[in-house]
Every structure is written in C-alpha cells, then in structure tokens.
Amino acid sequence: MNAVSAFAWSVLQDALHRKVFYAILAFSVLLMLLIPMLPSASVGVQVDLLREAALGLTSIMAFLLAVILASTIIPAELGRRTIYNTLSRPVRRWQYYLGKYIGIMVVVAFALFVSLAVLLVMVGAKFGVFNPGLAKAVFTIFLEATVLAAVAMLASVRFSPLVCVLFTGLFYVVCHVKGDFLYRAMTDSGNHALLRGVSGFLYYLLPNLERMNINETVAHSERVFRVGAGELALLAAIALIFSCIFLYLGAWLFERRDL
C-alpha cells in the first residue's frame, strides 16, 4: 500500500499546484456566497432555495474537478514523460492507477469539505439554522463523483482529455435520464427493435446516477422523503461497485498500454 499512498500523495501535491483546482473551488464558493443576493422567492422558502442552489453548485464543482483531474492525470504524465521515472520503479501499474484515483478522490473530498463548511456557515449566519443534514447530500455528491472519476480515468487510458471529458459528460447525461428516457425507449413497443435493444442494454448496464441526486430532498429538509442510513449505505454500495468495475477495466487497459 506504500506505493498506492505515494501515488495518491503525488496527486494531492499536483492538484495543489494546479490553478484549475483553485479556480474551480474559488468560483464555486464565490457563486455560493452570491446566492443570497438573488431575487428572493417567498420568505419561507428562501432557505430552501439557498440550500438547493448551493448544493447544485457544489455538485457542478465536484463533478468538474473529478472529471478534469481524472481525464488529465494520465495523459499529462505521458505527455510530460514523468511516468517513465515512476513506472520504471518496482511498482505495479494497478498501484499507480489506483493511487492516482484515490488521490483524485481525496482532492474532491477536500473541495467538498470546504464547500460544505461554507454552506453550513452561510445558512447558519443568514437564517440562524444549523443544518448537518446537508452532509448527506454532499456525501452522495461525492459518491457520484467517484463513479464519474472512474469513468473519466478509464477513458483517459486511451483517449485525449477533451474526448474523456465529452465521453464522461455523455455518460453523466445518459445515467441521469436512464430511469425515465431509457426505460420508456426500452418498453415502448412502437420503437424499432434495435433502439429498444440498445436502450435495454444501457438501462441494465449503467448506474442510475439520478438516484444519487438527493439535493432537492435535503434542501427541503427531507420533509417529503427521509434519507436514512440504509439508503445512504445502498447508494455507497452502488457507487463502490460501479467505481470498482470501471477501475478494474481501466487498470486492465492501462496494464496493456505502451508508454
């Protein structure tokens, strides 16, 4: 595990020296601080709106960070040829791959922690409400980011960063509409058999990321649905399984790649 943690540490060091990390974090915190200045809805729902908008911003920030880091780390190291110095040592390629992934998730977790802290302070200061339930939404944002980072990193073994970002964006969209759009495309007997087949294949193959989006529920203080520990554990298990599948595929491809 020493090599894995060393690789993870290197990602943290790298991220802390990248302007994009600070830019994304600062931009998202700044926008969050500007939310109270938006034209208010009725006074009663103001806090809900603030929480929902801030969680939305937090999601975008976390996903951008995860996807950008995961899409660029391997291509950048290949481009700079720093990878020769690391992988010529007595380390296994999967250790490199896993270490880099863990490092990315540590960076995302750090950024989410900062966001959550800003959000809690902001809600507390403006409305006098302490809302630890927001941590549940931030946790599921993190879970979704783990899946997206694993997908982006898998793509980065073969493709350029731009292609990886686009591919992961497409994956994100499809996984968010699968419960509705894909299900209807799969079950509508009026559709062509091929479309129904492809929709069905994707429906059963891809994770339902929309299920991990509990921002609205948490923003509205879980008045309609309660997100319990069981639900969070199930979402964590889904994220873990899909992340592991994508990581395994990525590591397998990376093992076979010429550097």
Partner: peptide, 10 residues
C-alpha cells in the same frame, strides 16, 4: 530515461 522530466514544482 532519455531527457528525464519531473514534476517541476517539487
């Protein structure tokens, strides 16, 4: 390696 490159912030 030929022309070694490193993470220059280190």
């Amino acid at each position: 390696p030929e022309q070694p490159y490193f993470d220059l912030y280190l």
